[in-house]
Computed example of a mutant assay.
Amino acid sequence: MQFQPLALANVQLITLKVFQDARGSFMENFRLDQFQAHCGPYQLVQDNYSVSDASVLRGLHFQLRRPQGKLLQVTRGRIFDVLVDLRPNSPTFGRWEGIWLDSQLPQLLWVPPGFAHGFYVAEGPADVSYKCTDYYQPDDQFVLTYQDPELQIQWPCDGQPLLSDKDQRGQSWAELLPLLRN
């Protein structure tokens, strides 16, 4: 496993080593010791799996009181994954980063607790598997609008993305900022 820090503080892109021969391939997908050495002393307690059609945009989701770190991998399709740093004491607070993740590349993305997270499906259907550091709490779920005018996230959408009702009602950065600073 190769760990590469990205532009936002504490975010890691993890490239997996694939062993191939005439029978097929094998890769180590997760090692707690290496994960904790590079990402921190987190425990992964919940495993989620989503399937999304092309042009679906999910997010930007976060939990405020019980933030979830996420270790995610695209197992089918191609997505543009976006993170927004919501940690007031972070040197990258209020900044976003986007990264392409593709099932053809053996990579994982570590999103630490304290980030809003979402993705756009460029090639679908896309299957995304992600392990979380805390349990899903519906009463603690917030959505930062994907088209916030202040953040100006450069989504690679081809036309209007398909959104859930919840994601259509996402709040702006300006609306959420007082909650984040408390």
Rank of each mutant, 00 (worst) to 15 (best):
F62H: 04
R66T: 15
P5S: 13
P161C: 04
A122K: 05
R78K: 12
V111F: 08
E97K: 01
E28N: 07
Q160C: 05
F3N: 00
D140Y: 10
V56N: 00
L144Q: 06
D53N: 13
L64A: 04
Q137C: 10
Q141C: 09
L177M: 05
L44S: 08
E97W: 15
K17G: 11
G118E: 04
D148C: 06
N10P: 04
V121N: 02
P138F: 14
G77H: 10
E123R: 06
G98Q: 01
Q2P: 06
L162F: 15
R181I: 09
L162K: 10
V82D: 00
T92P: 00
L32H: 14
L6C: 05
L16M: 04
L177D: 08
A174S: 10
N10E: 15
P156R: 04
G40Q: 04
C157M: 03
F30I: 00
K70R: 07
V82E: 01
L86Y: 11
K70E: 06
S164M: 07
L108K: 06
P106D: 08
L86G: 04
Y49A: 04
Q4L: 11
Q104L: 14
M1A: 15
D165L: 12
D139A: 11
V128S: 02
L32R: 12
W173V: 05
S90N: 08
D127T: 12
P161K: 04
L72M: 13
T133A: 05
Q43G: 10
Y130H: 03
G59N: 03
G114T: 10
K131I: 12
D33R: 02
L109W: 13
T75K: 01
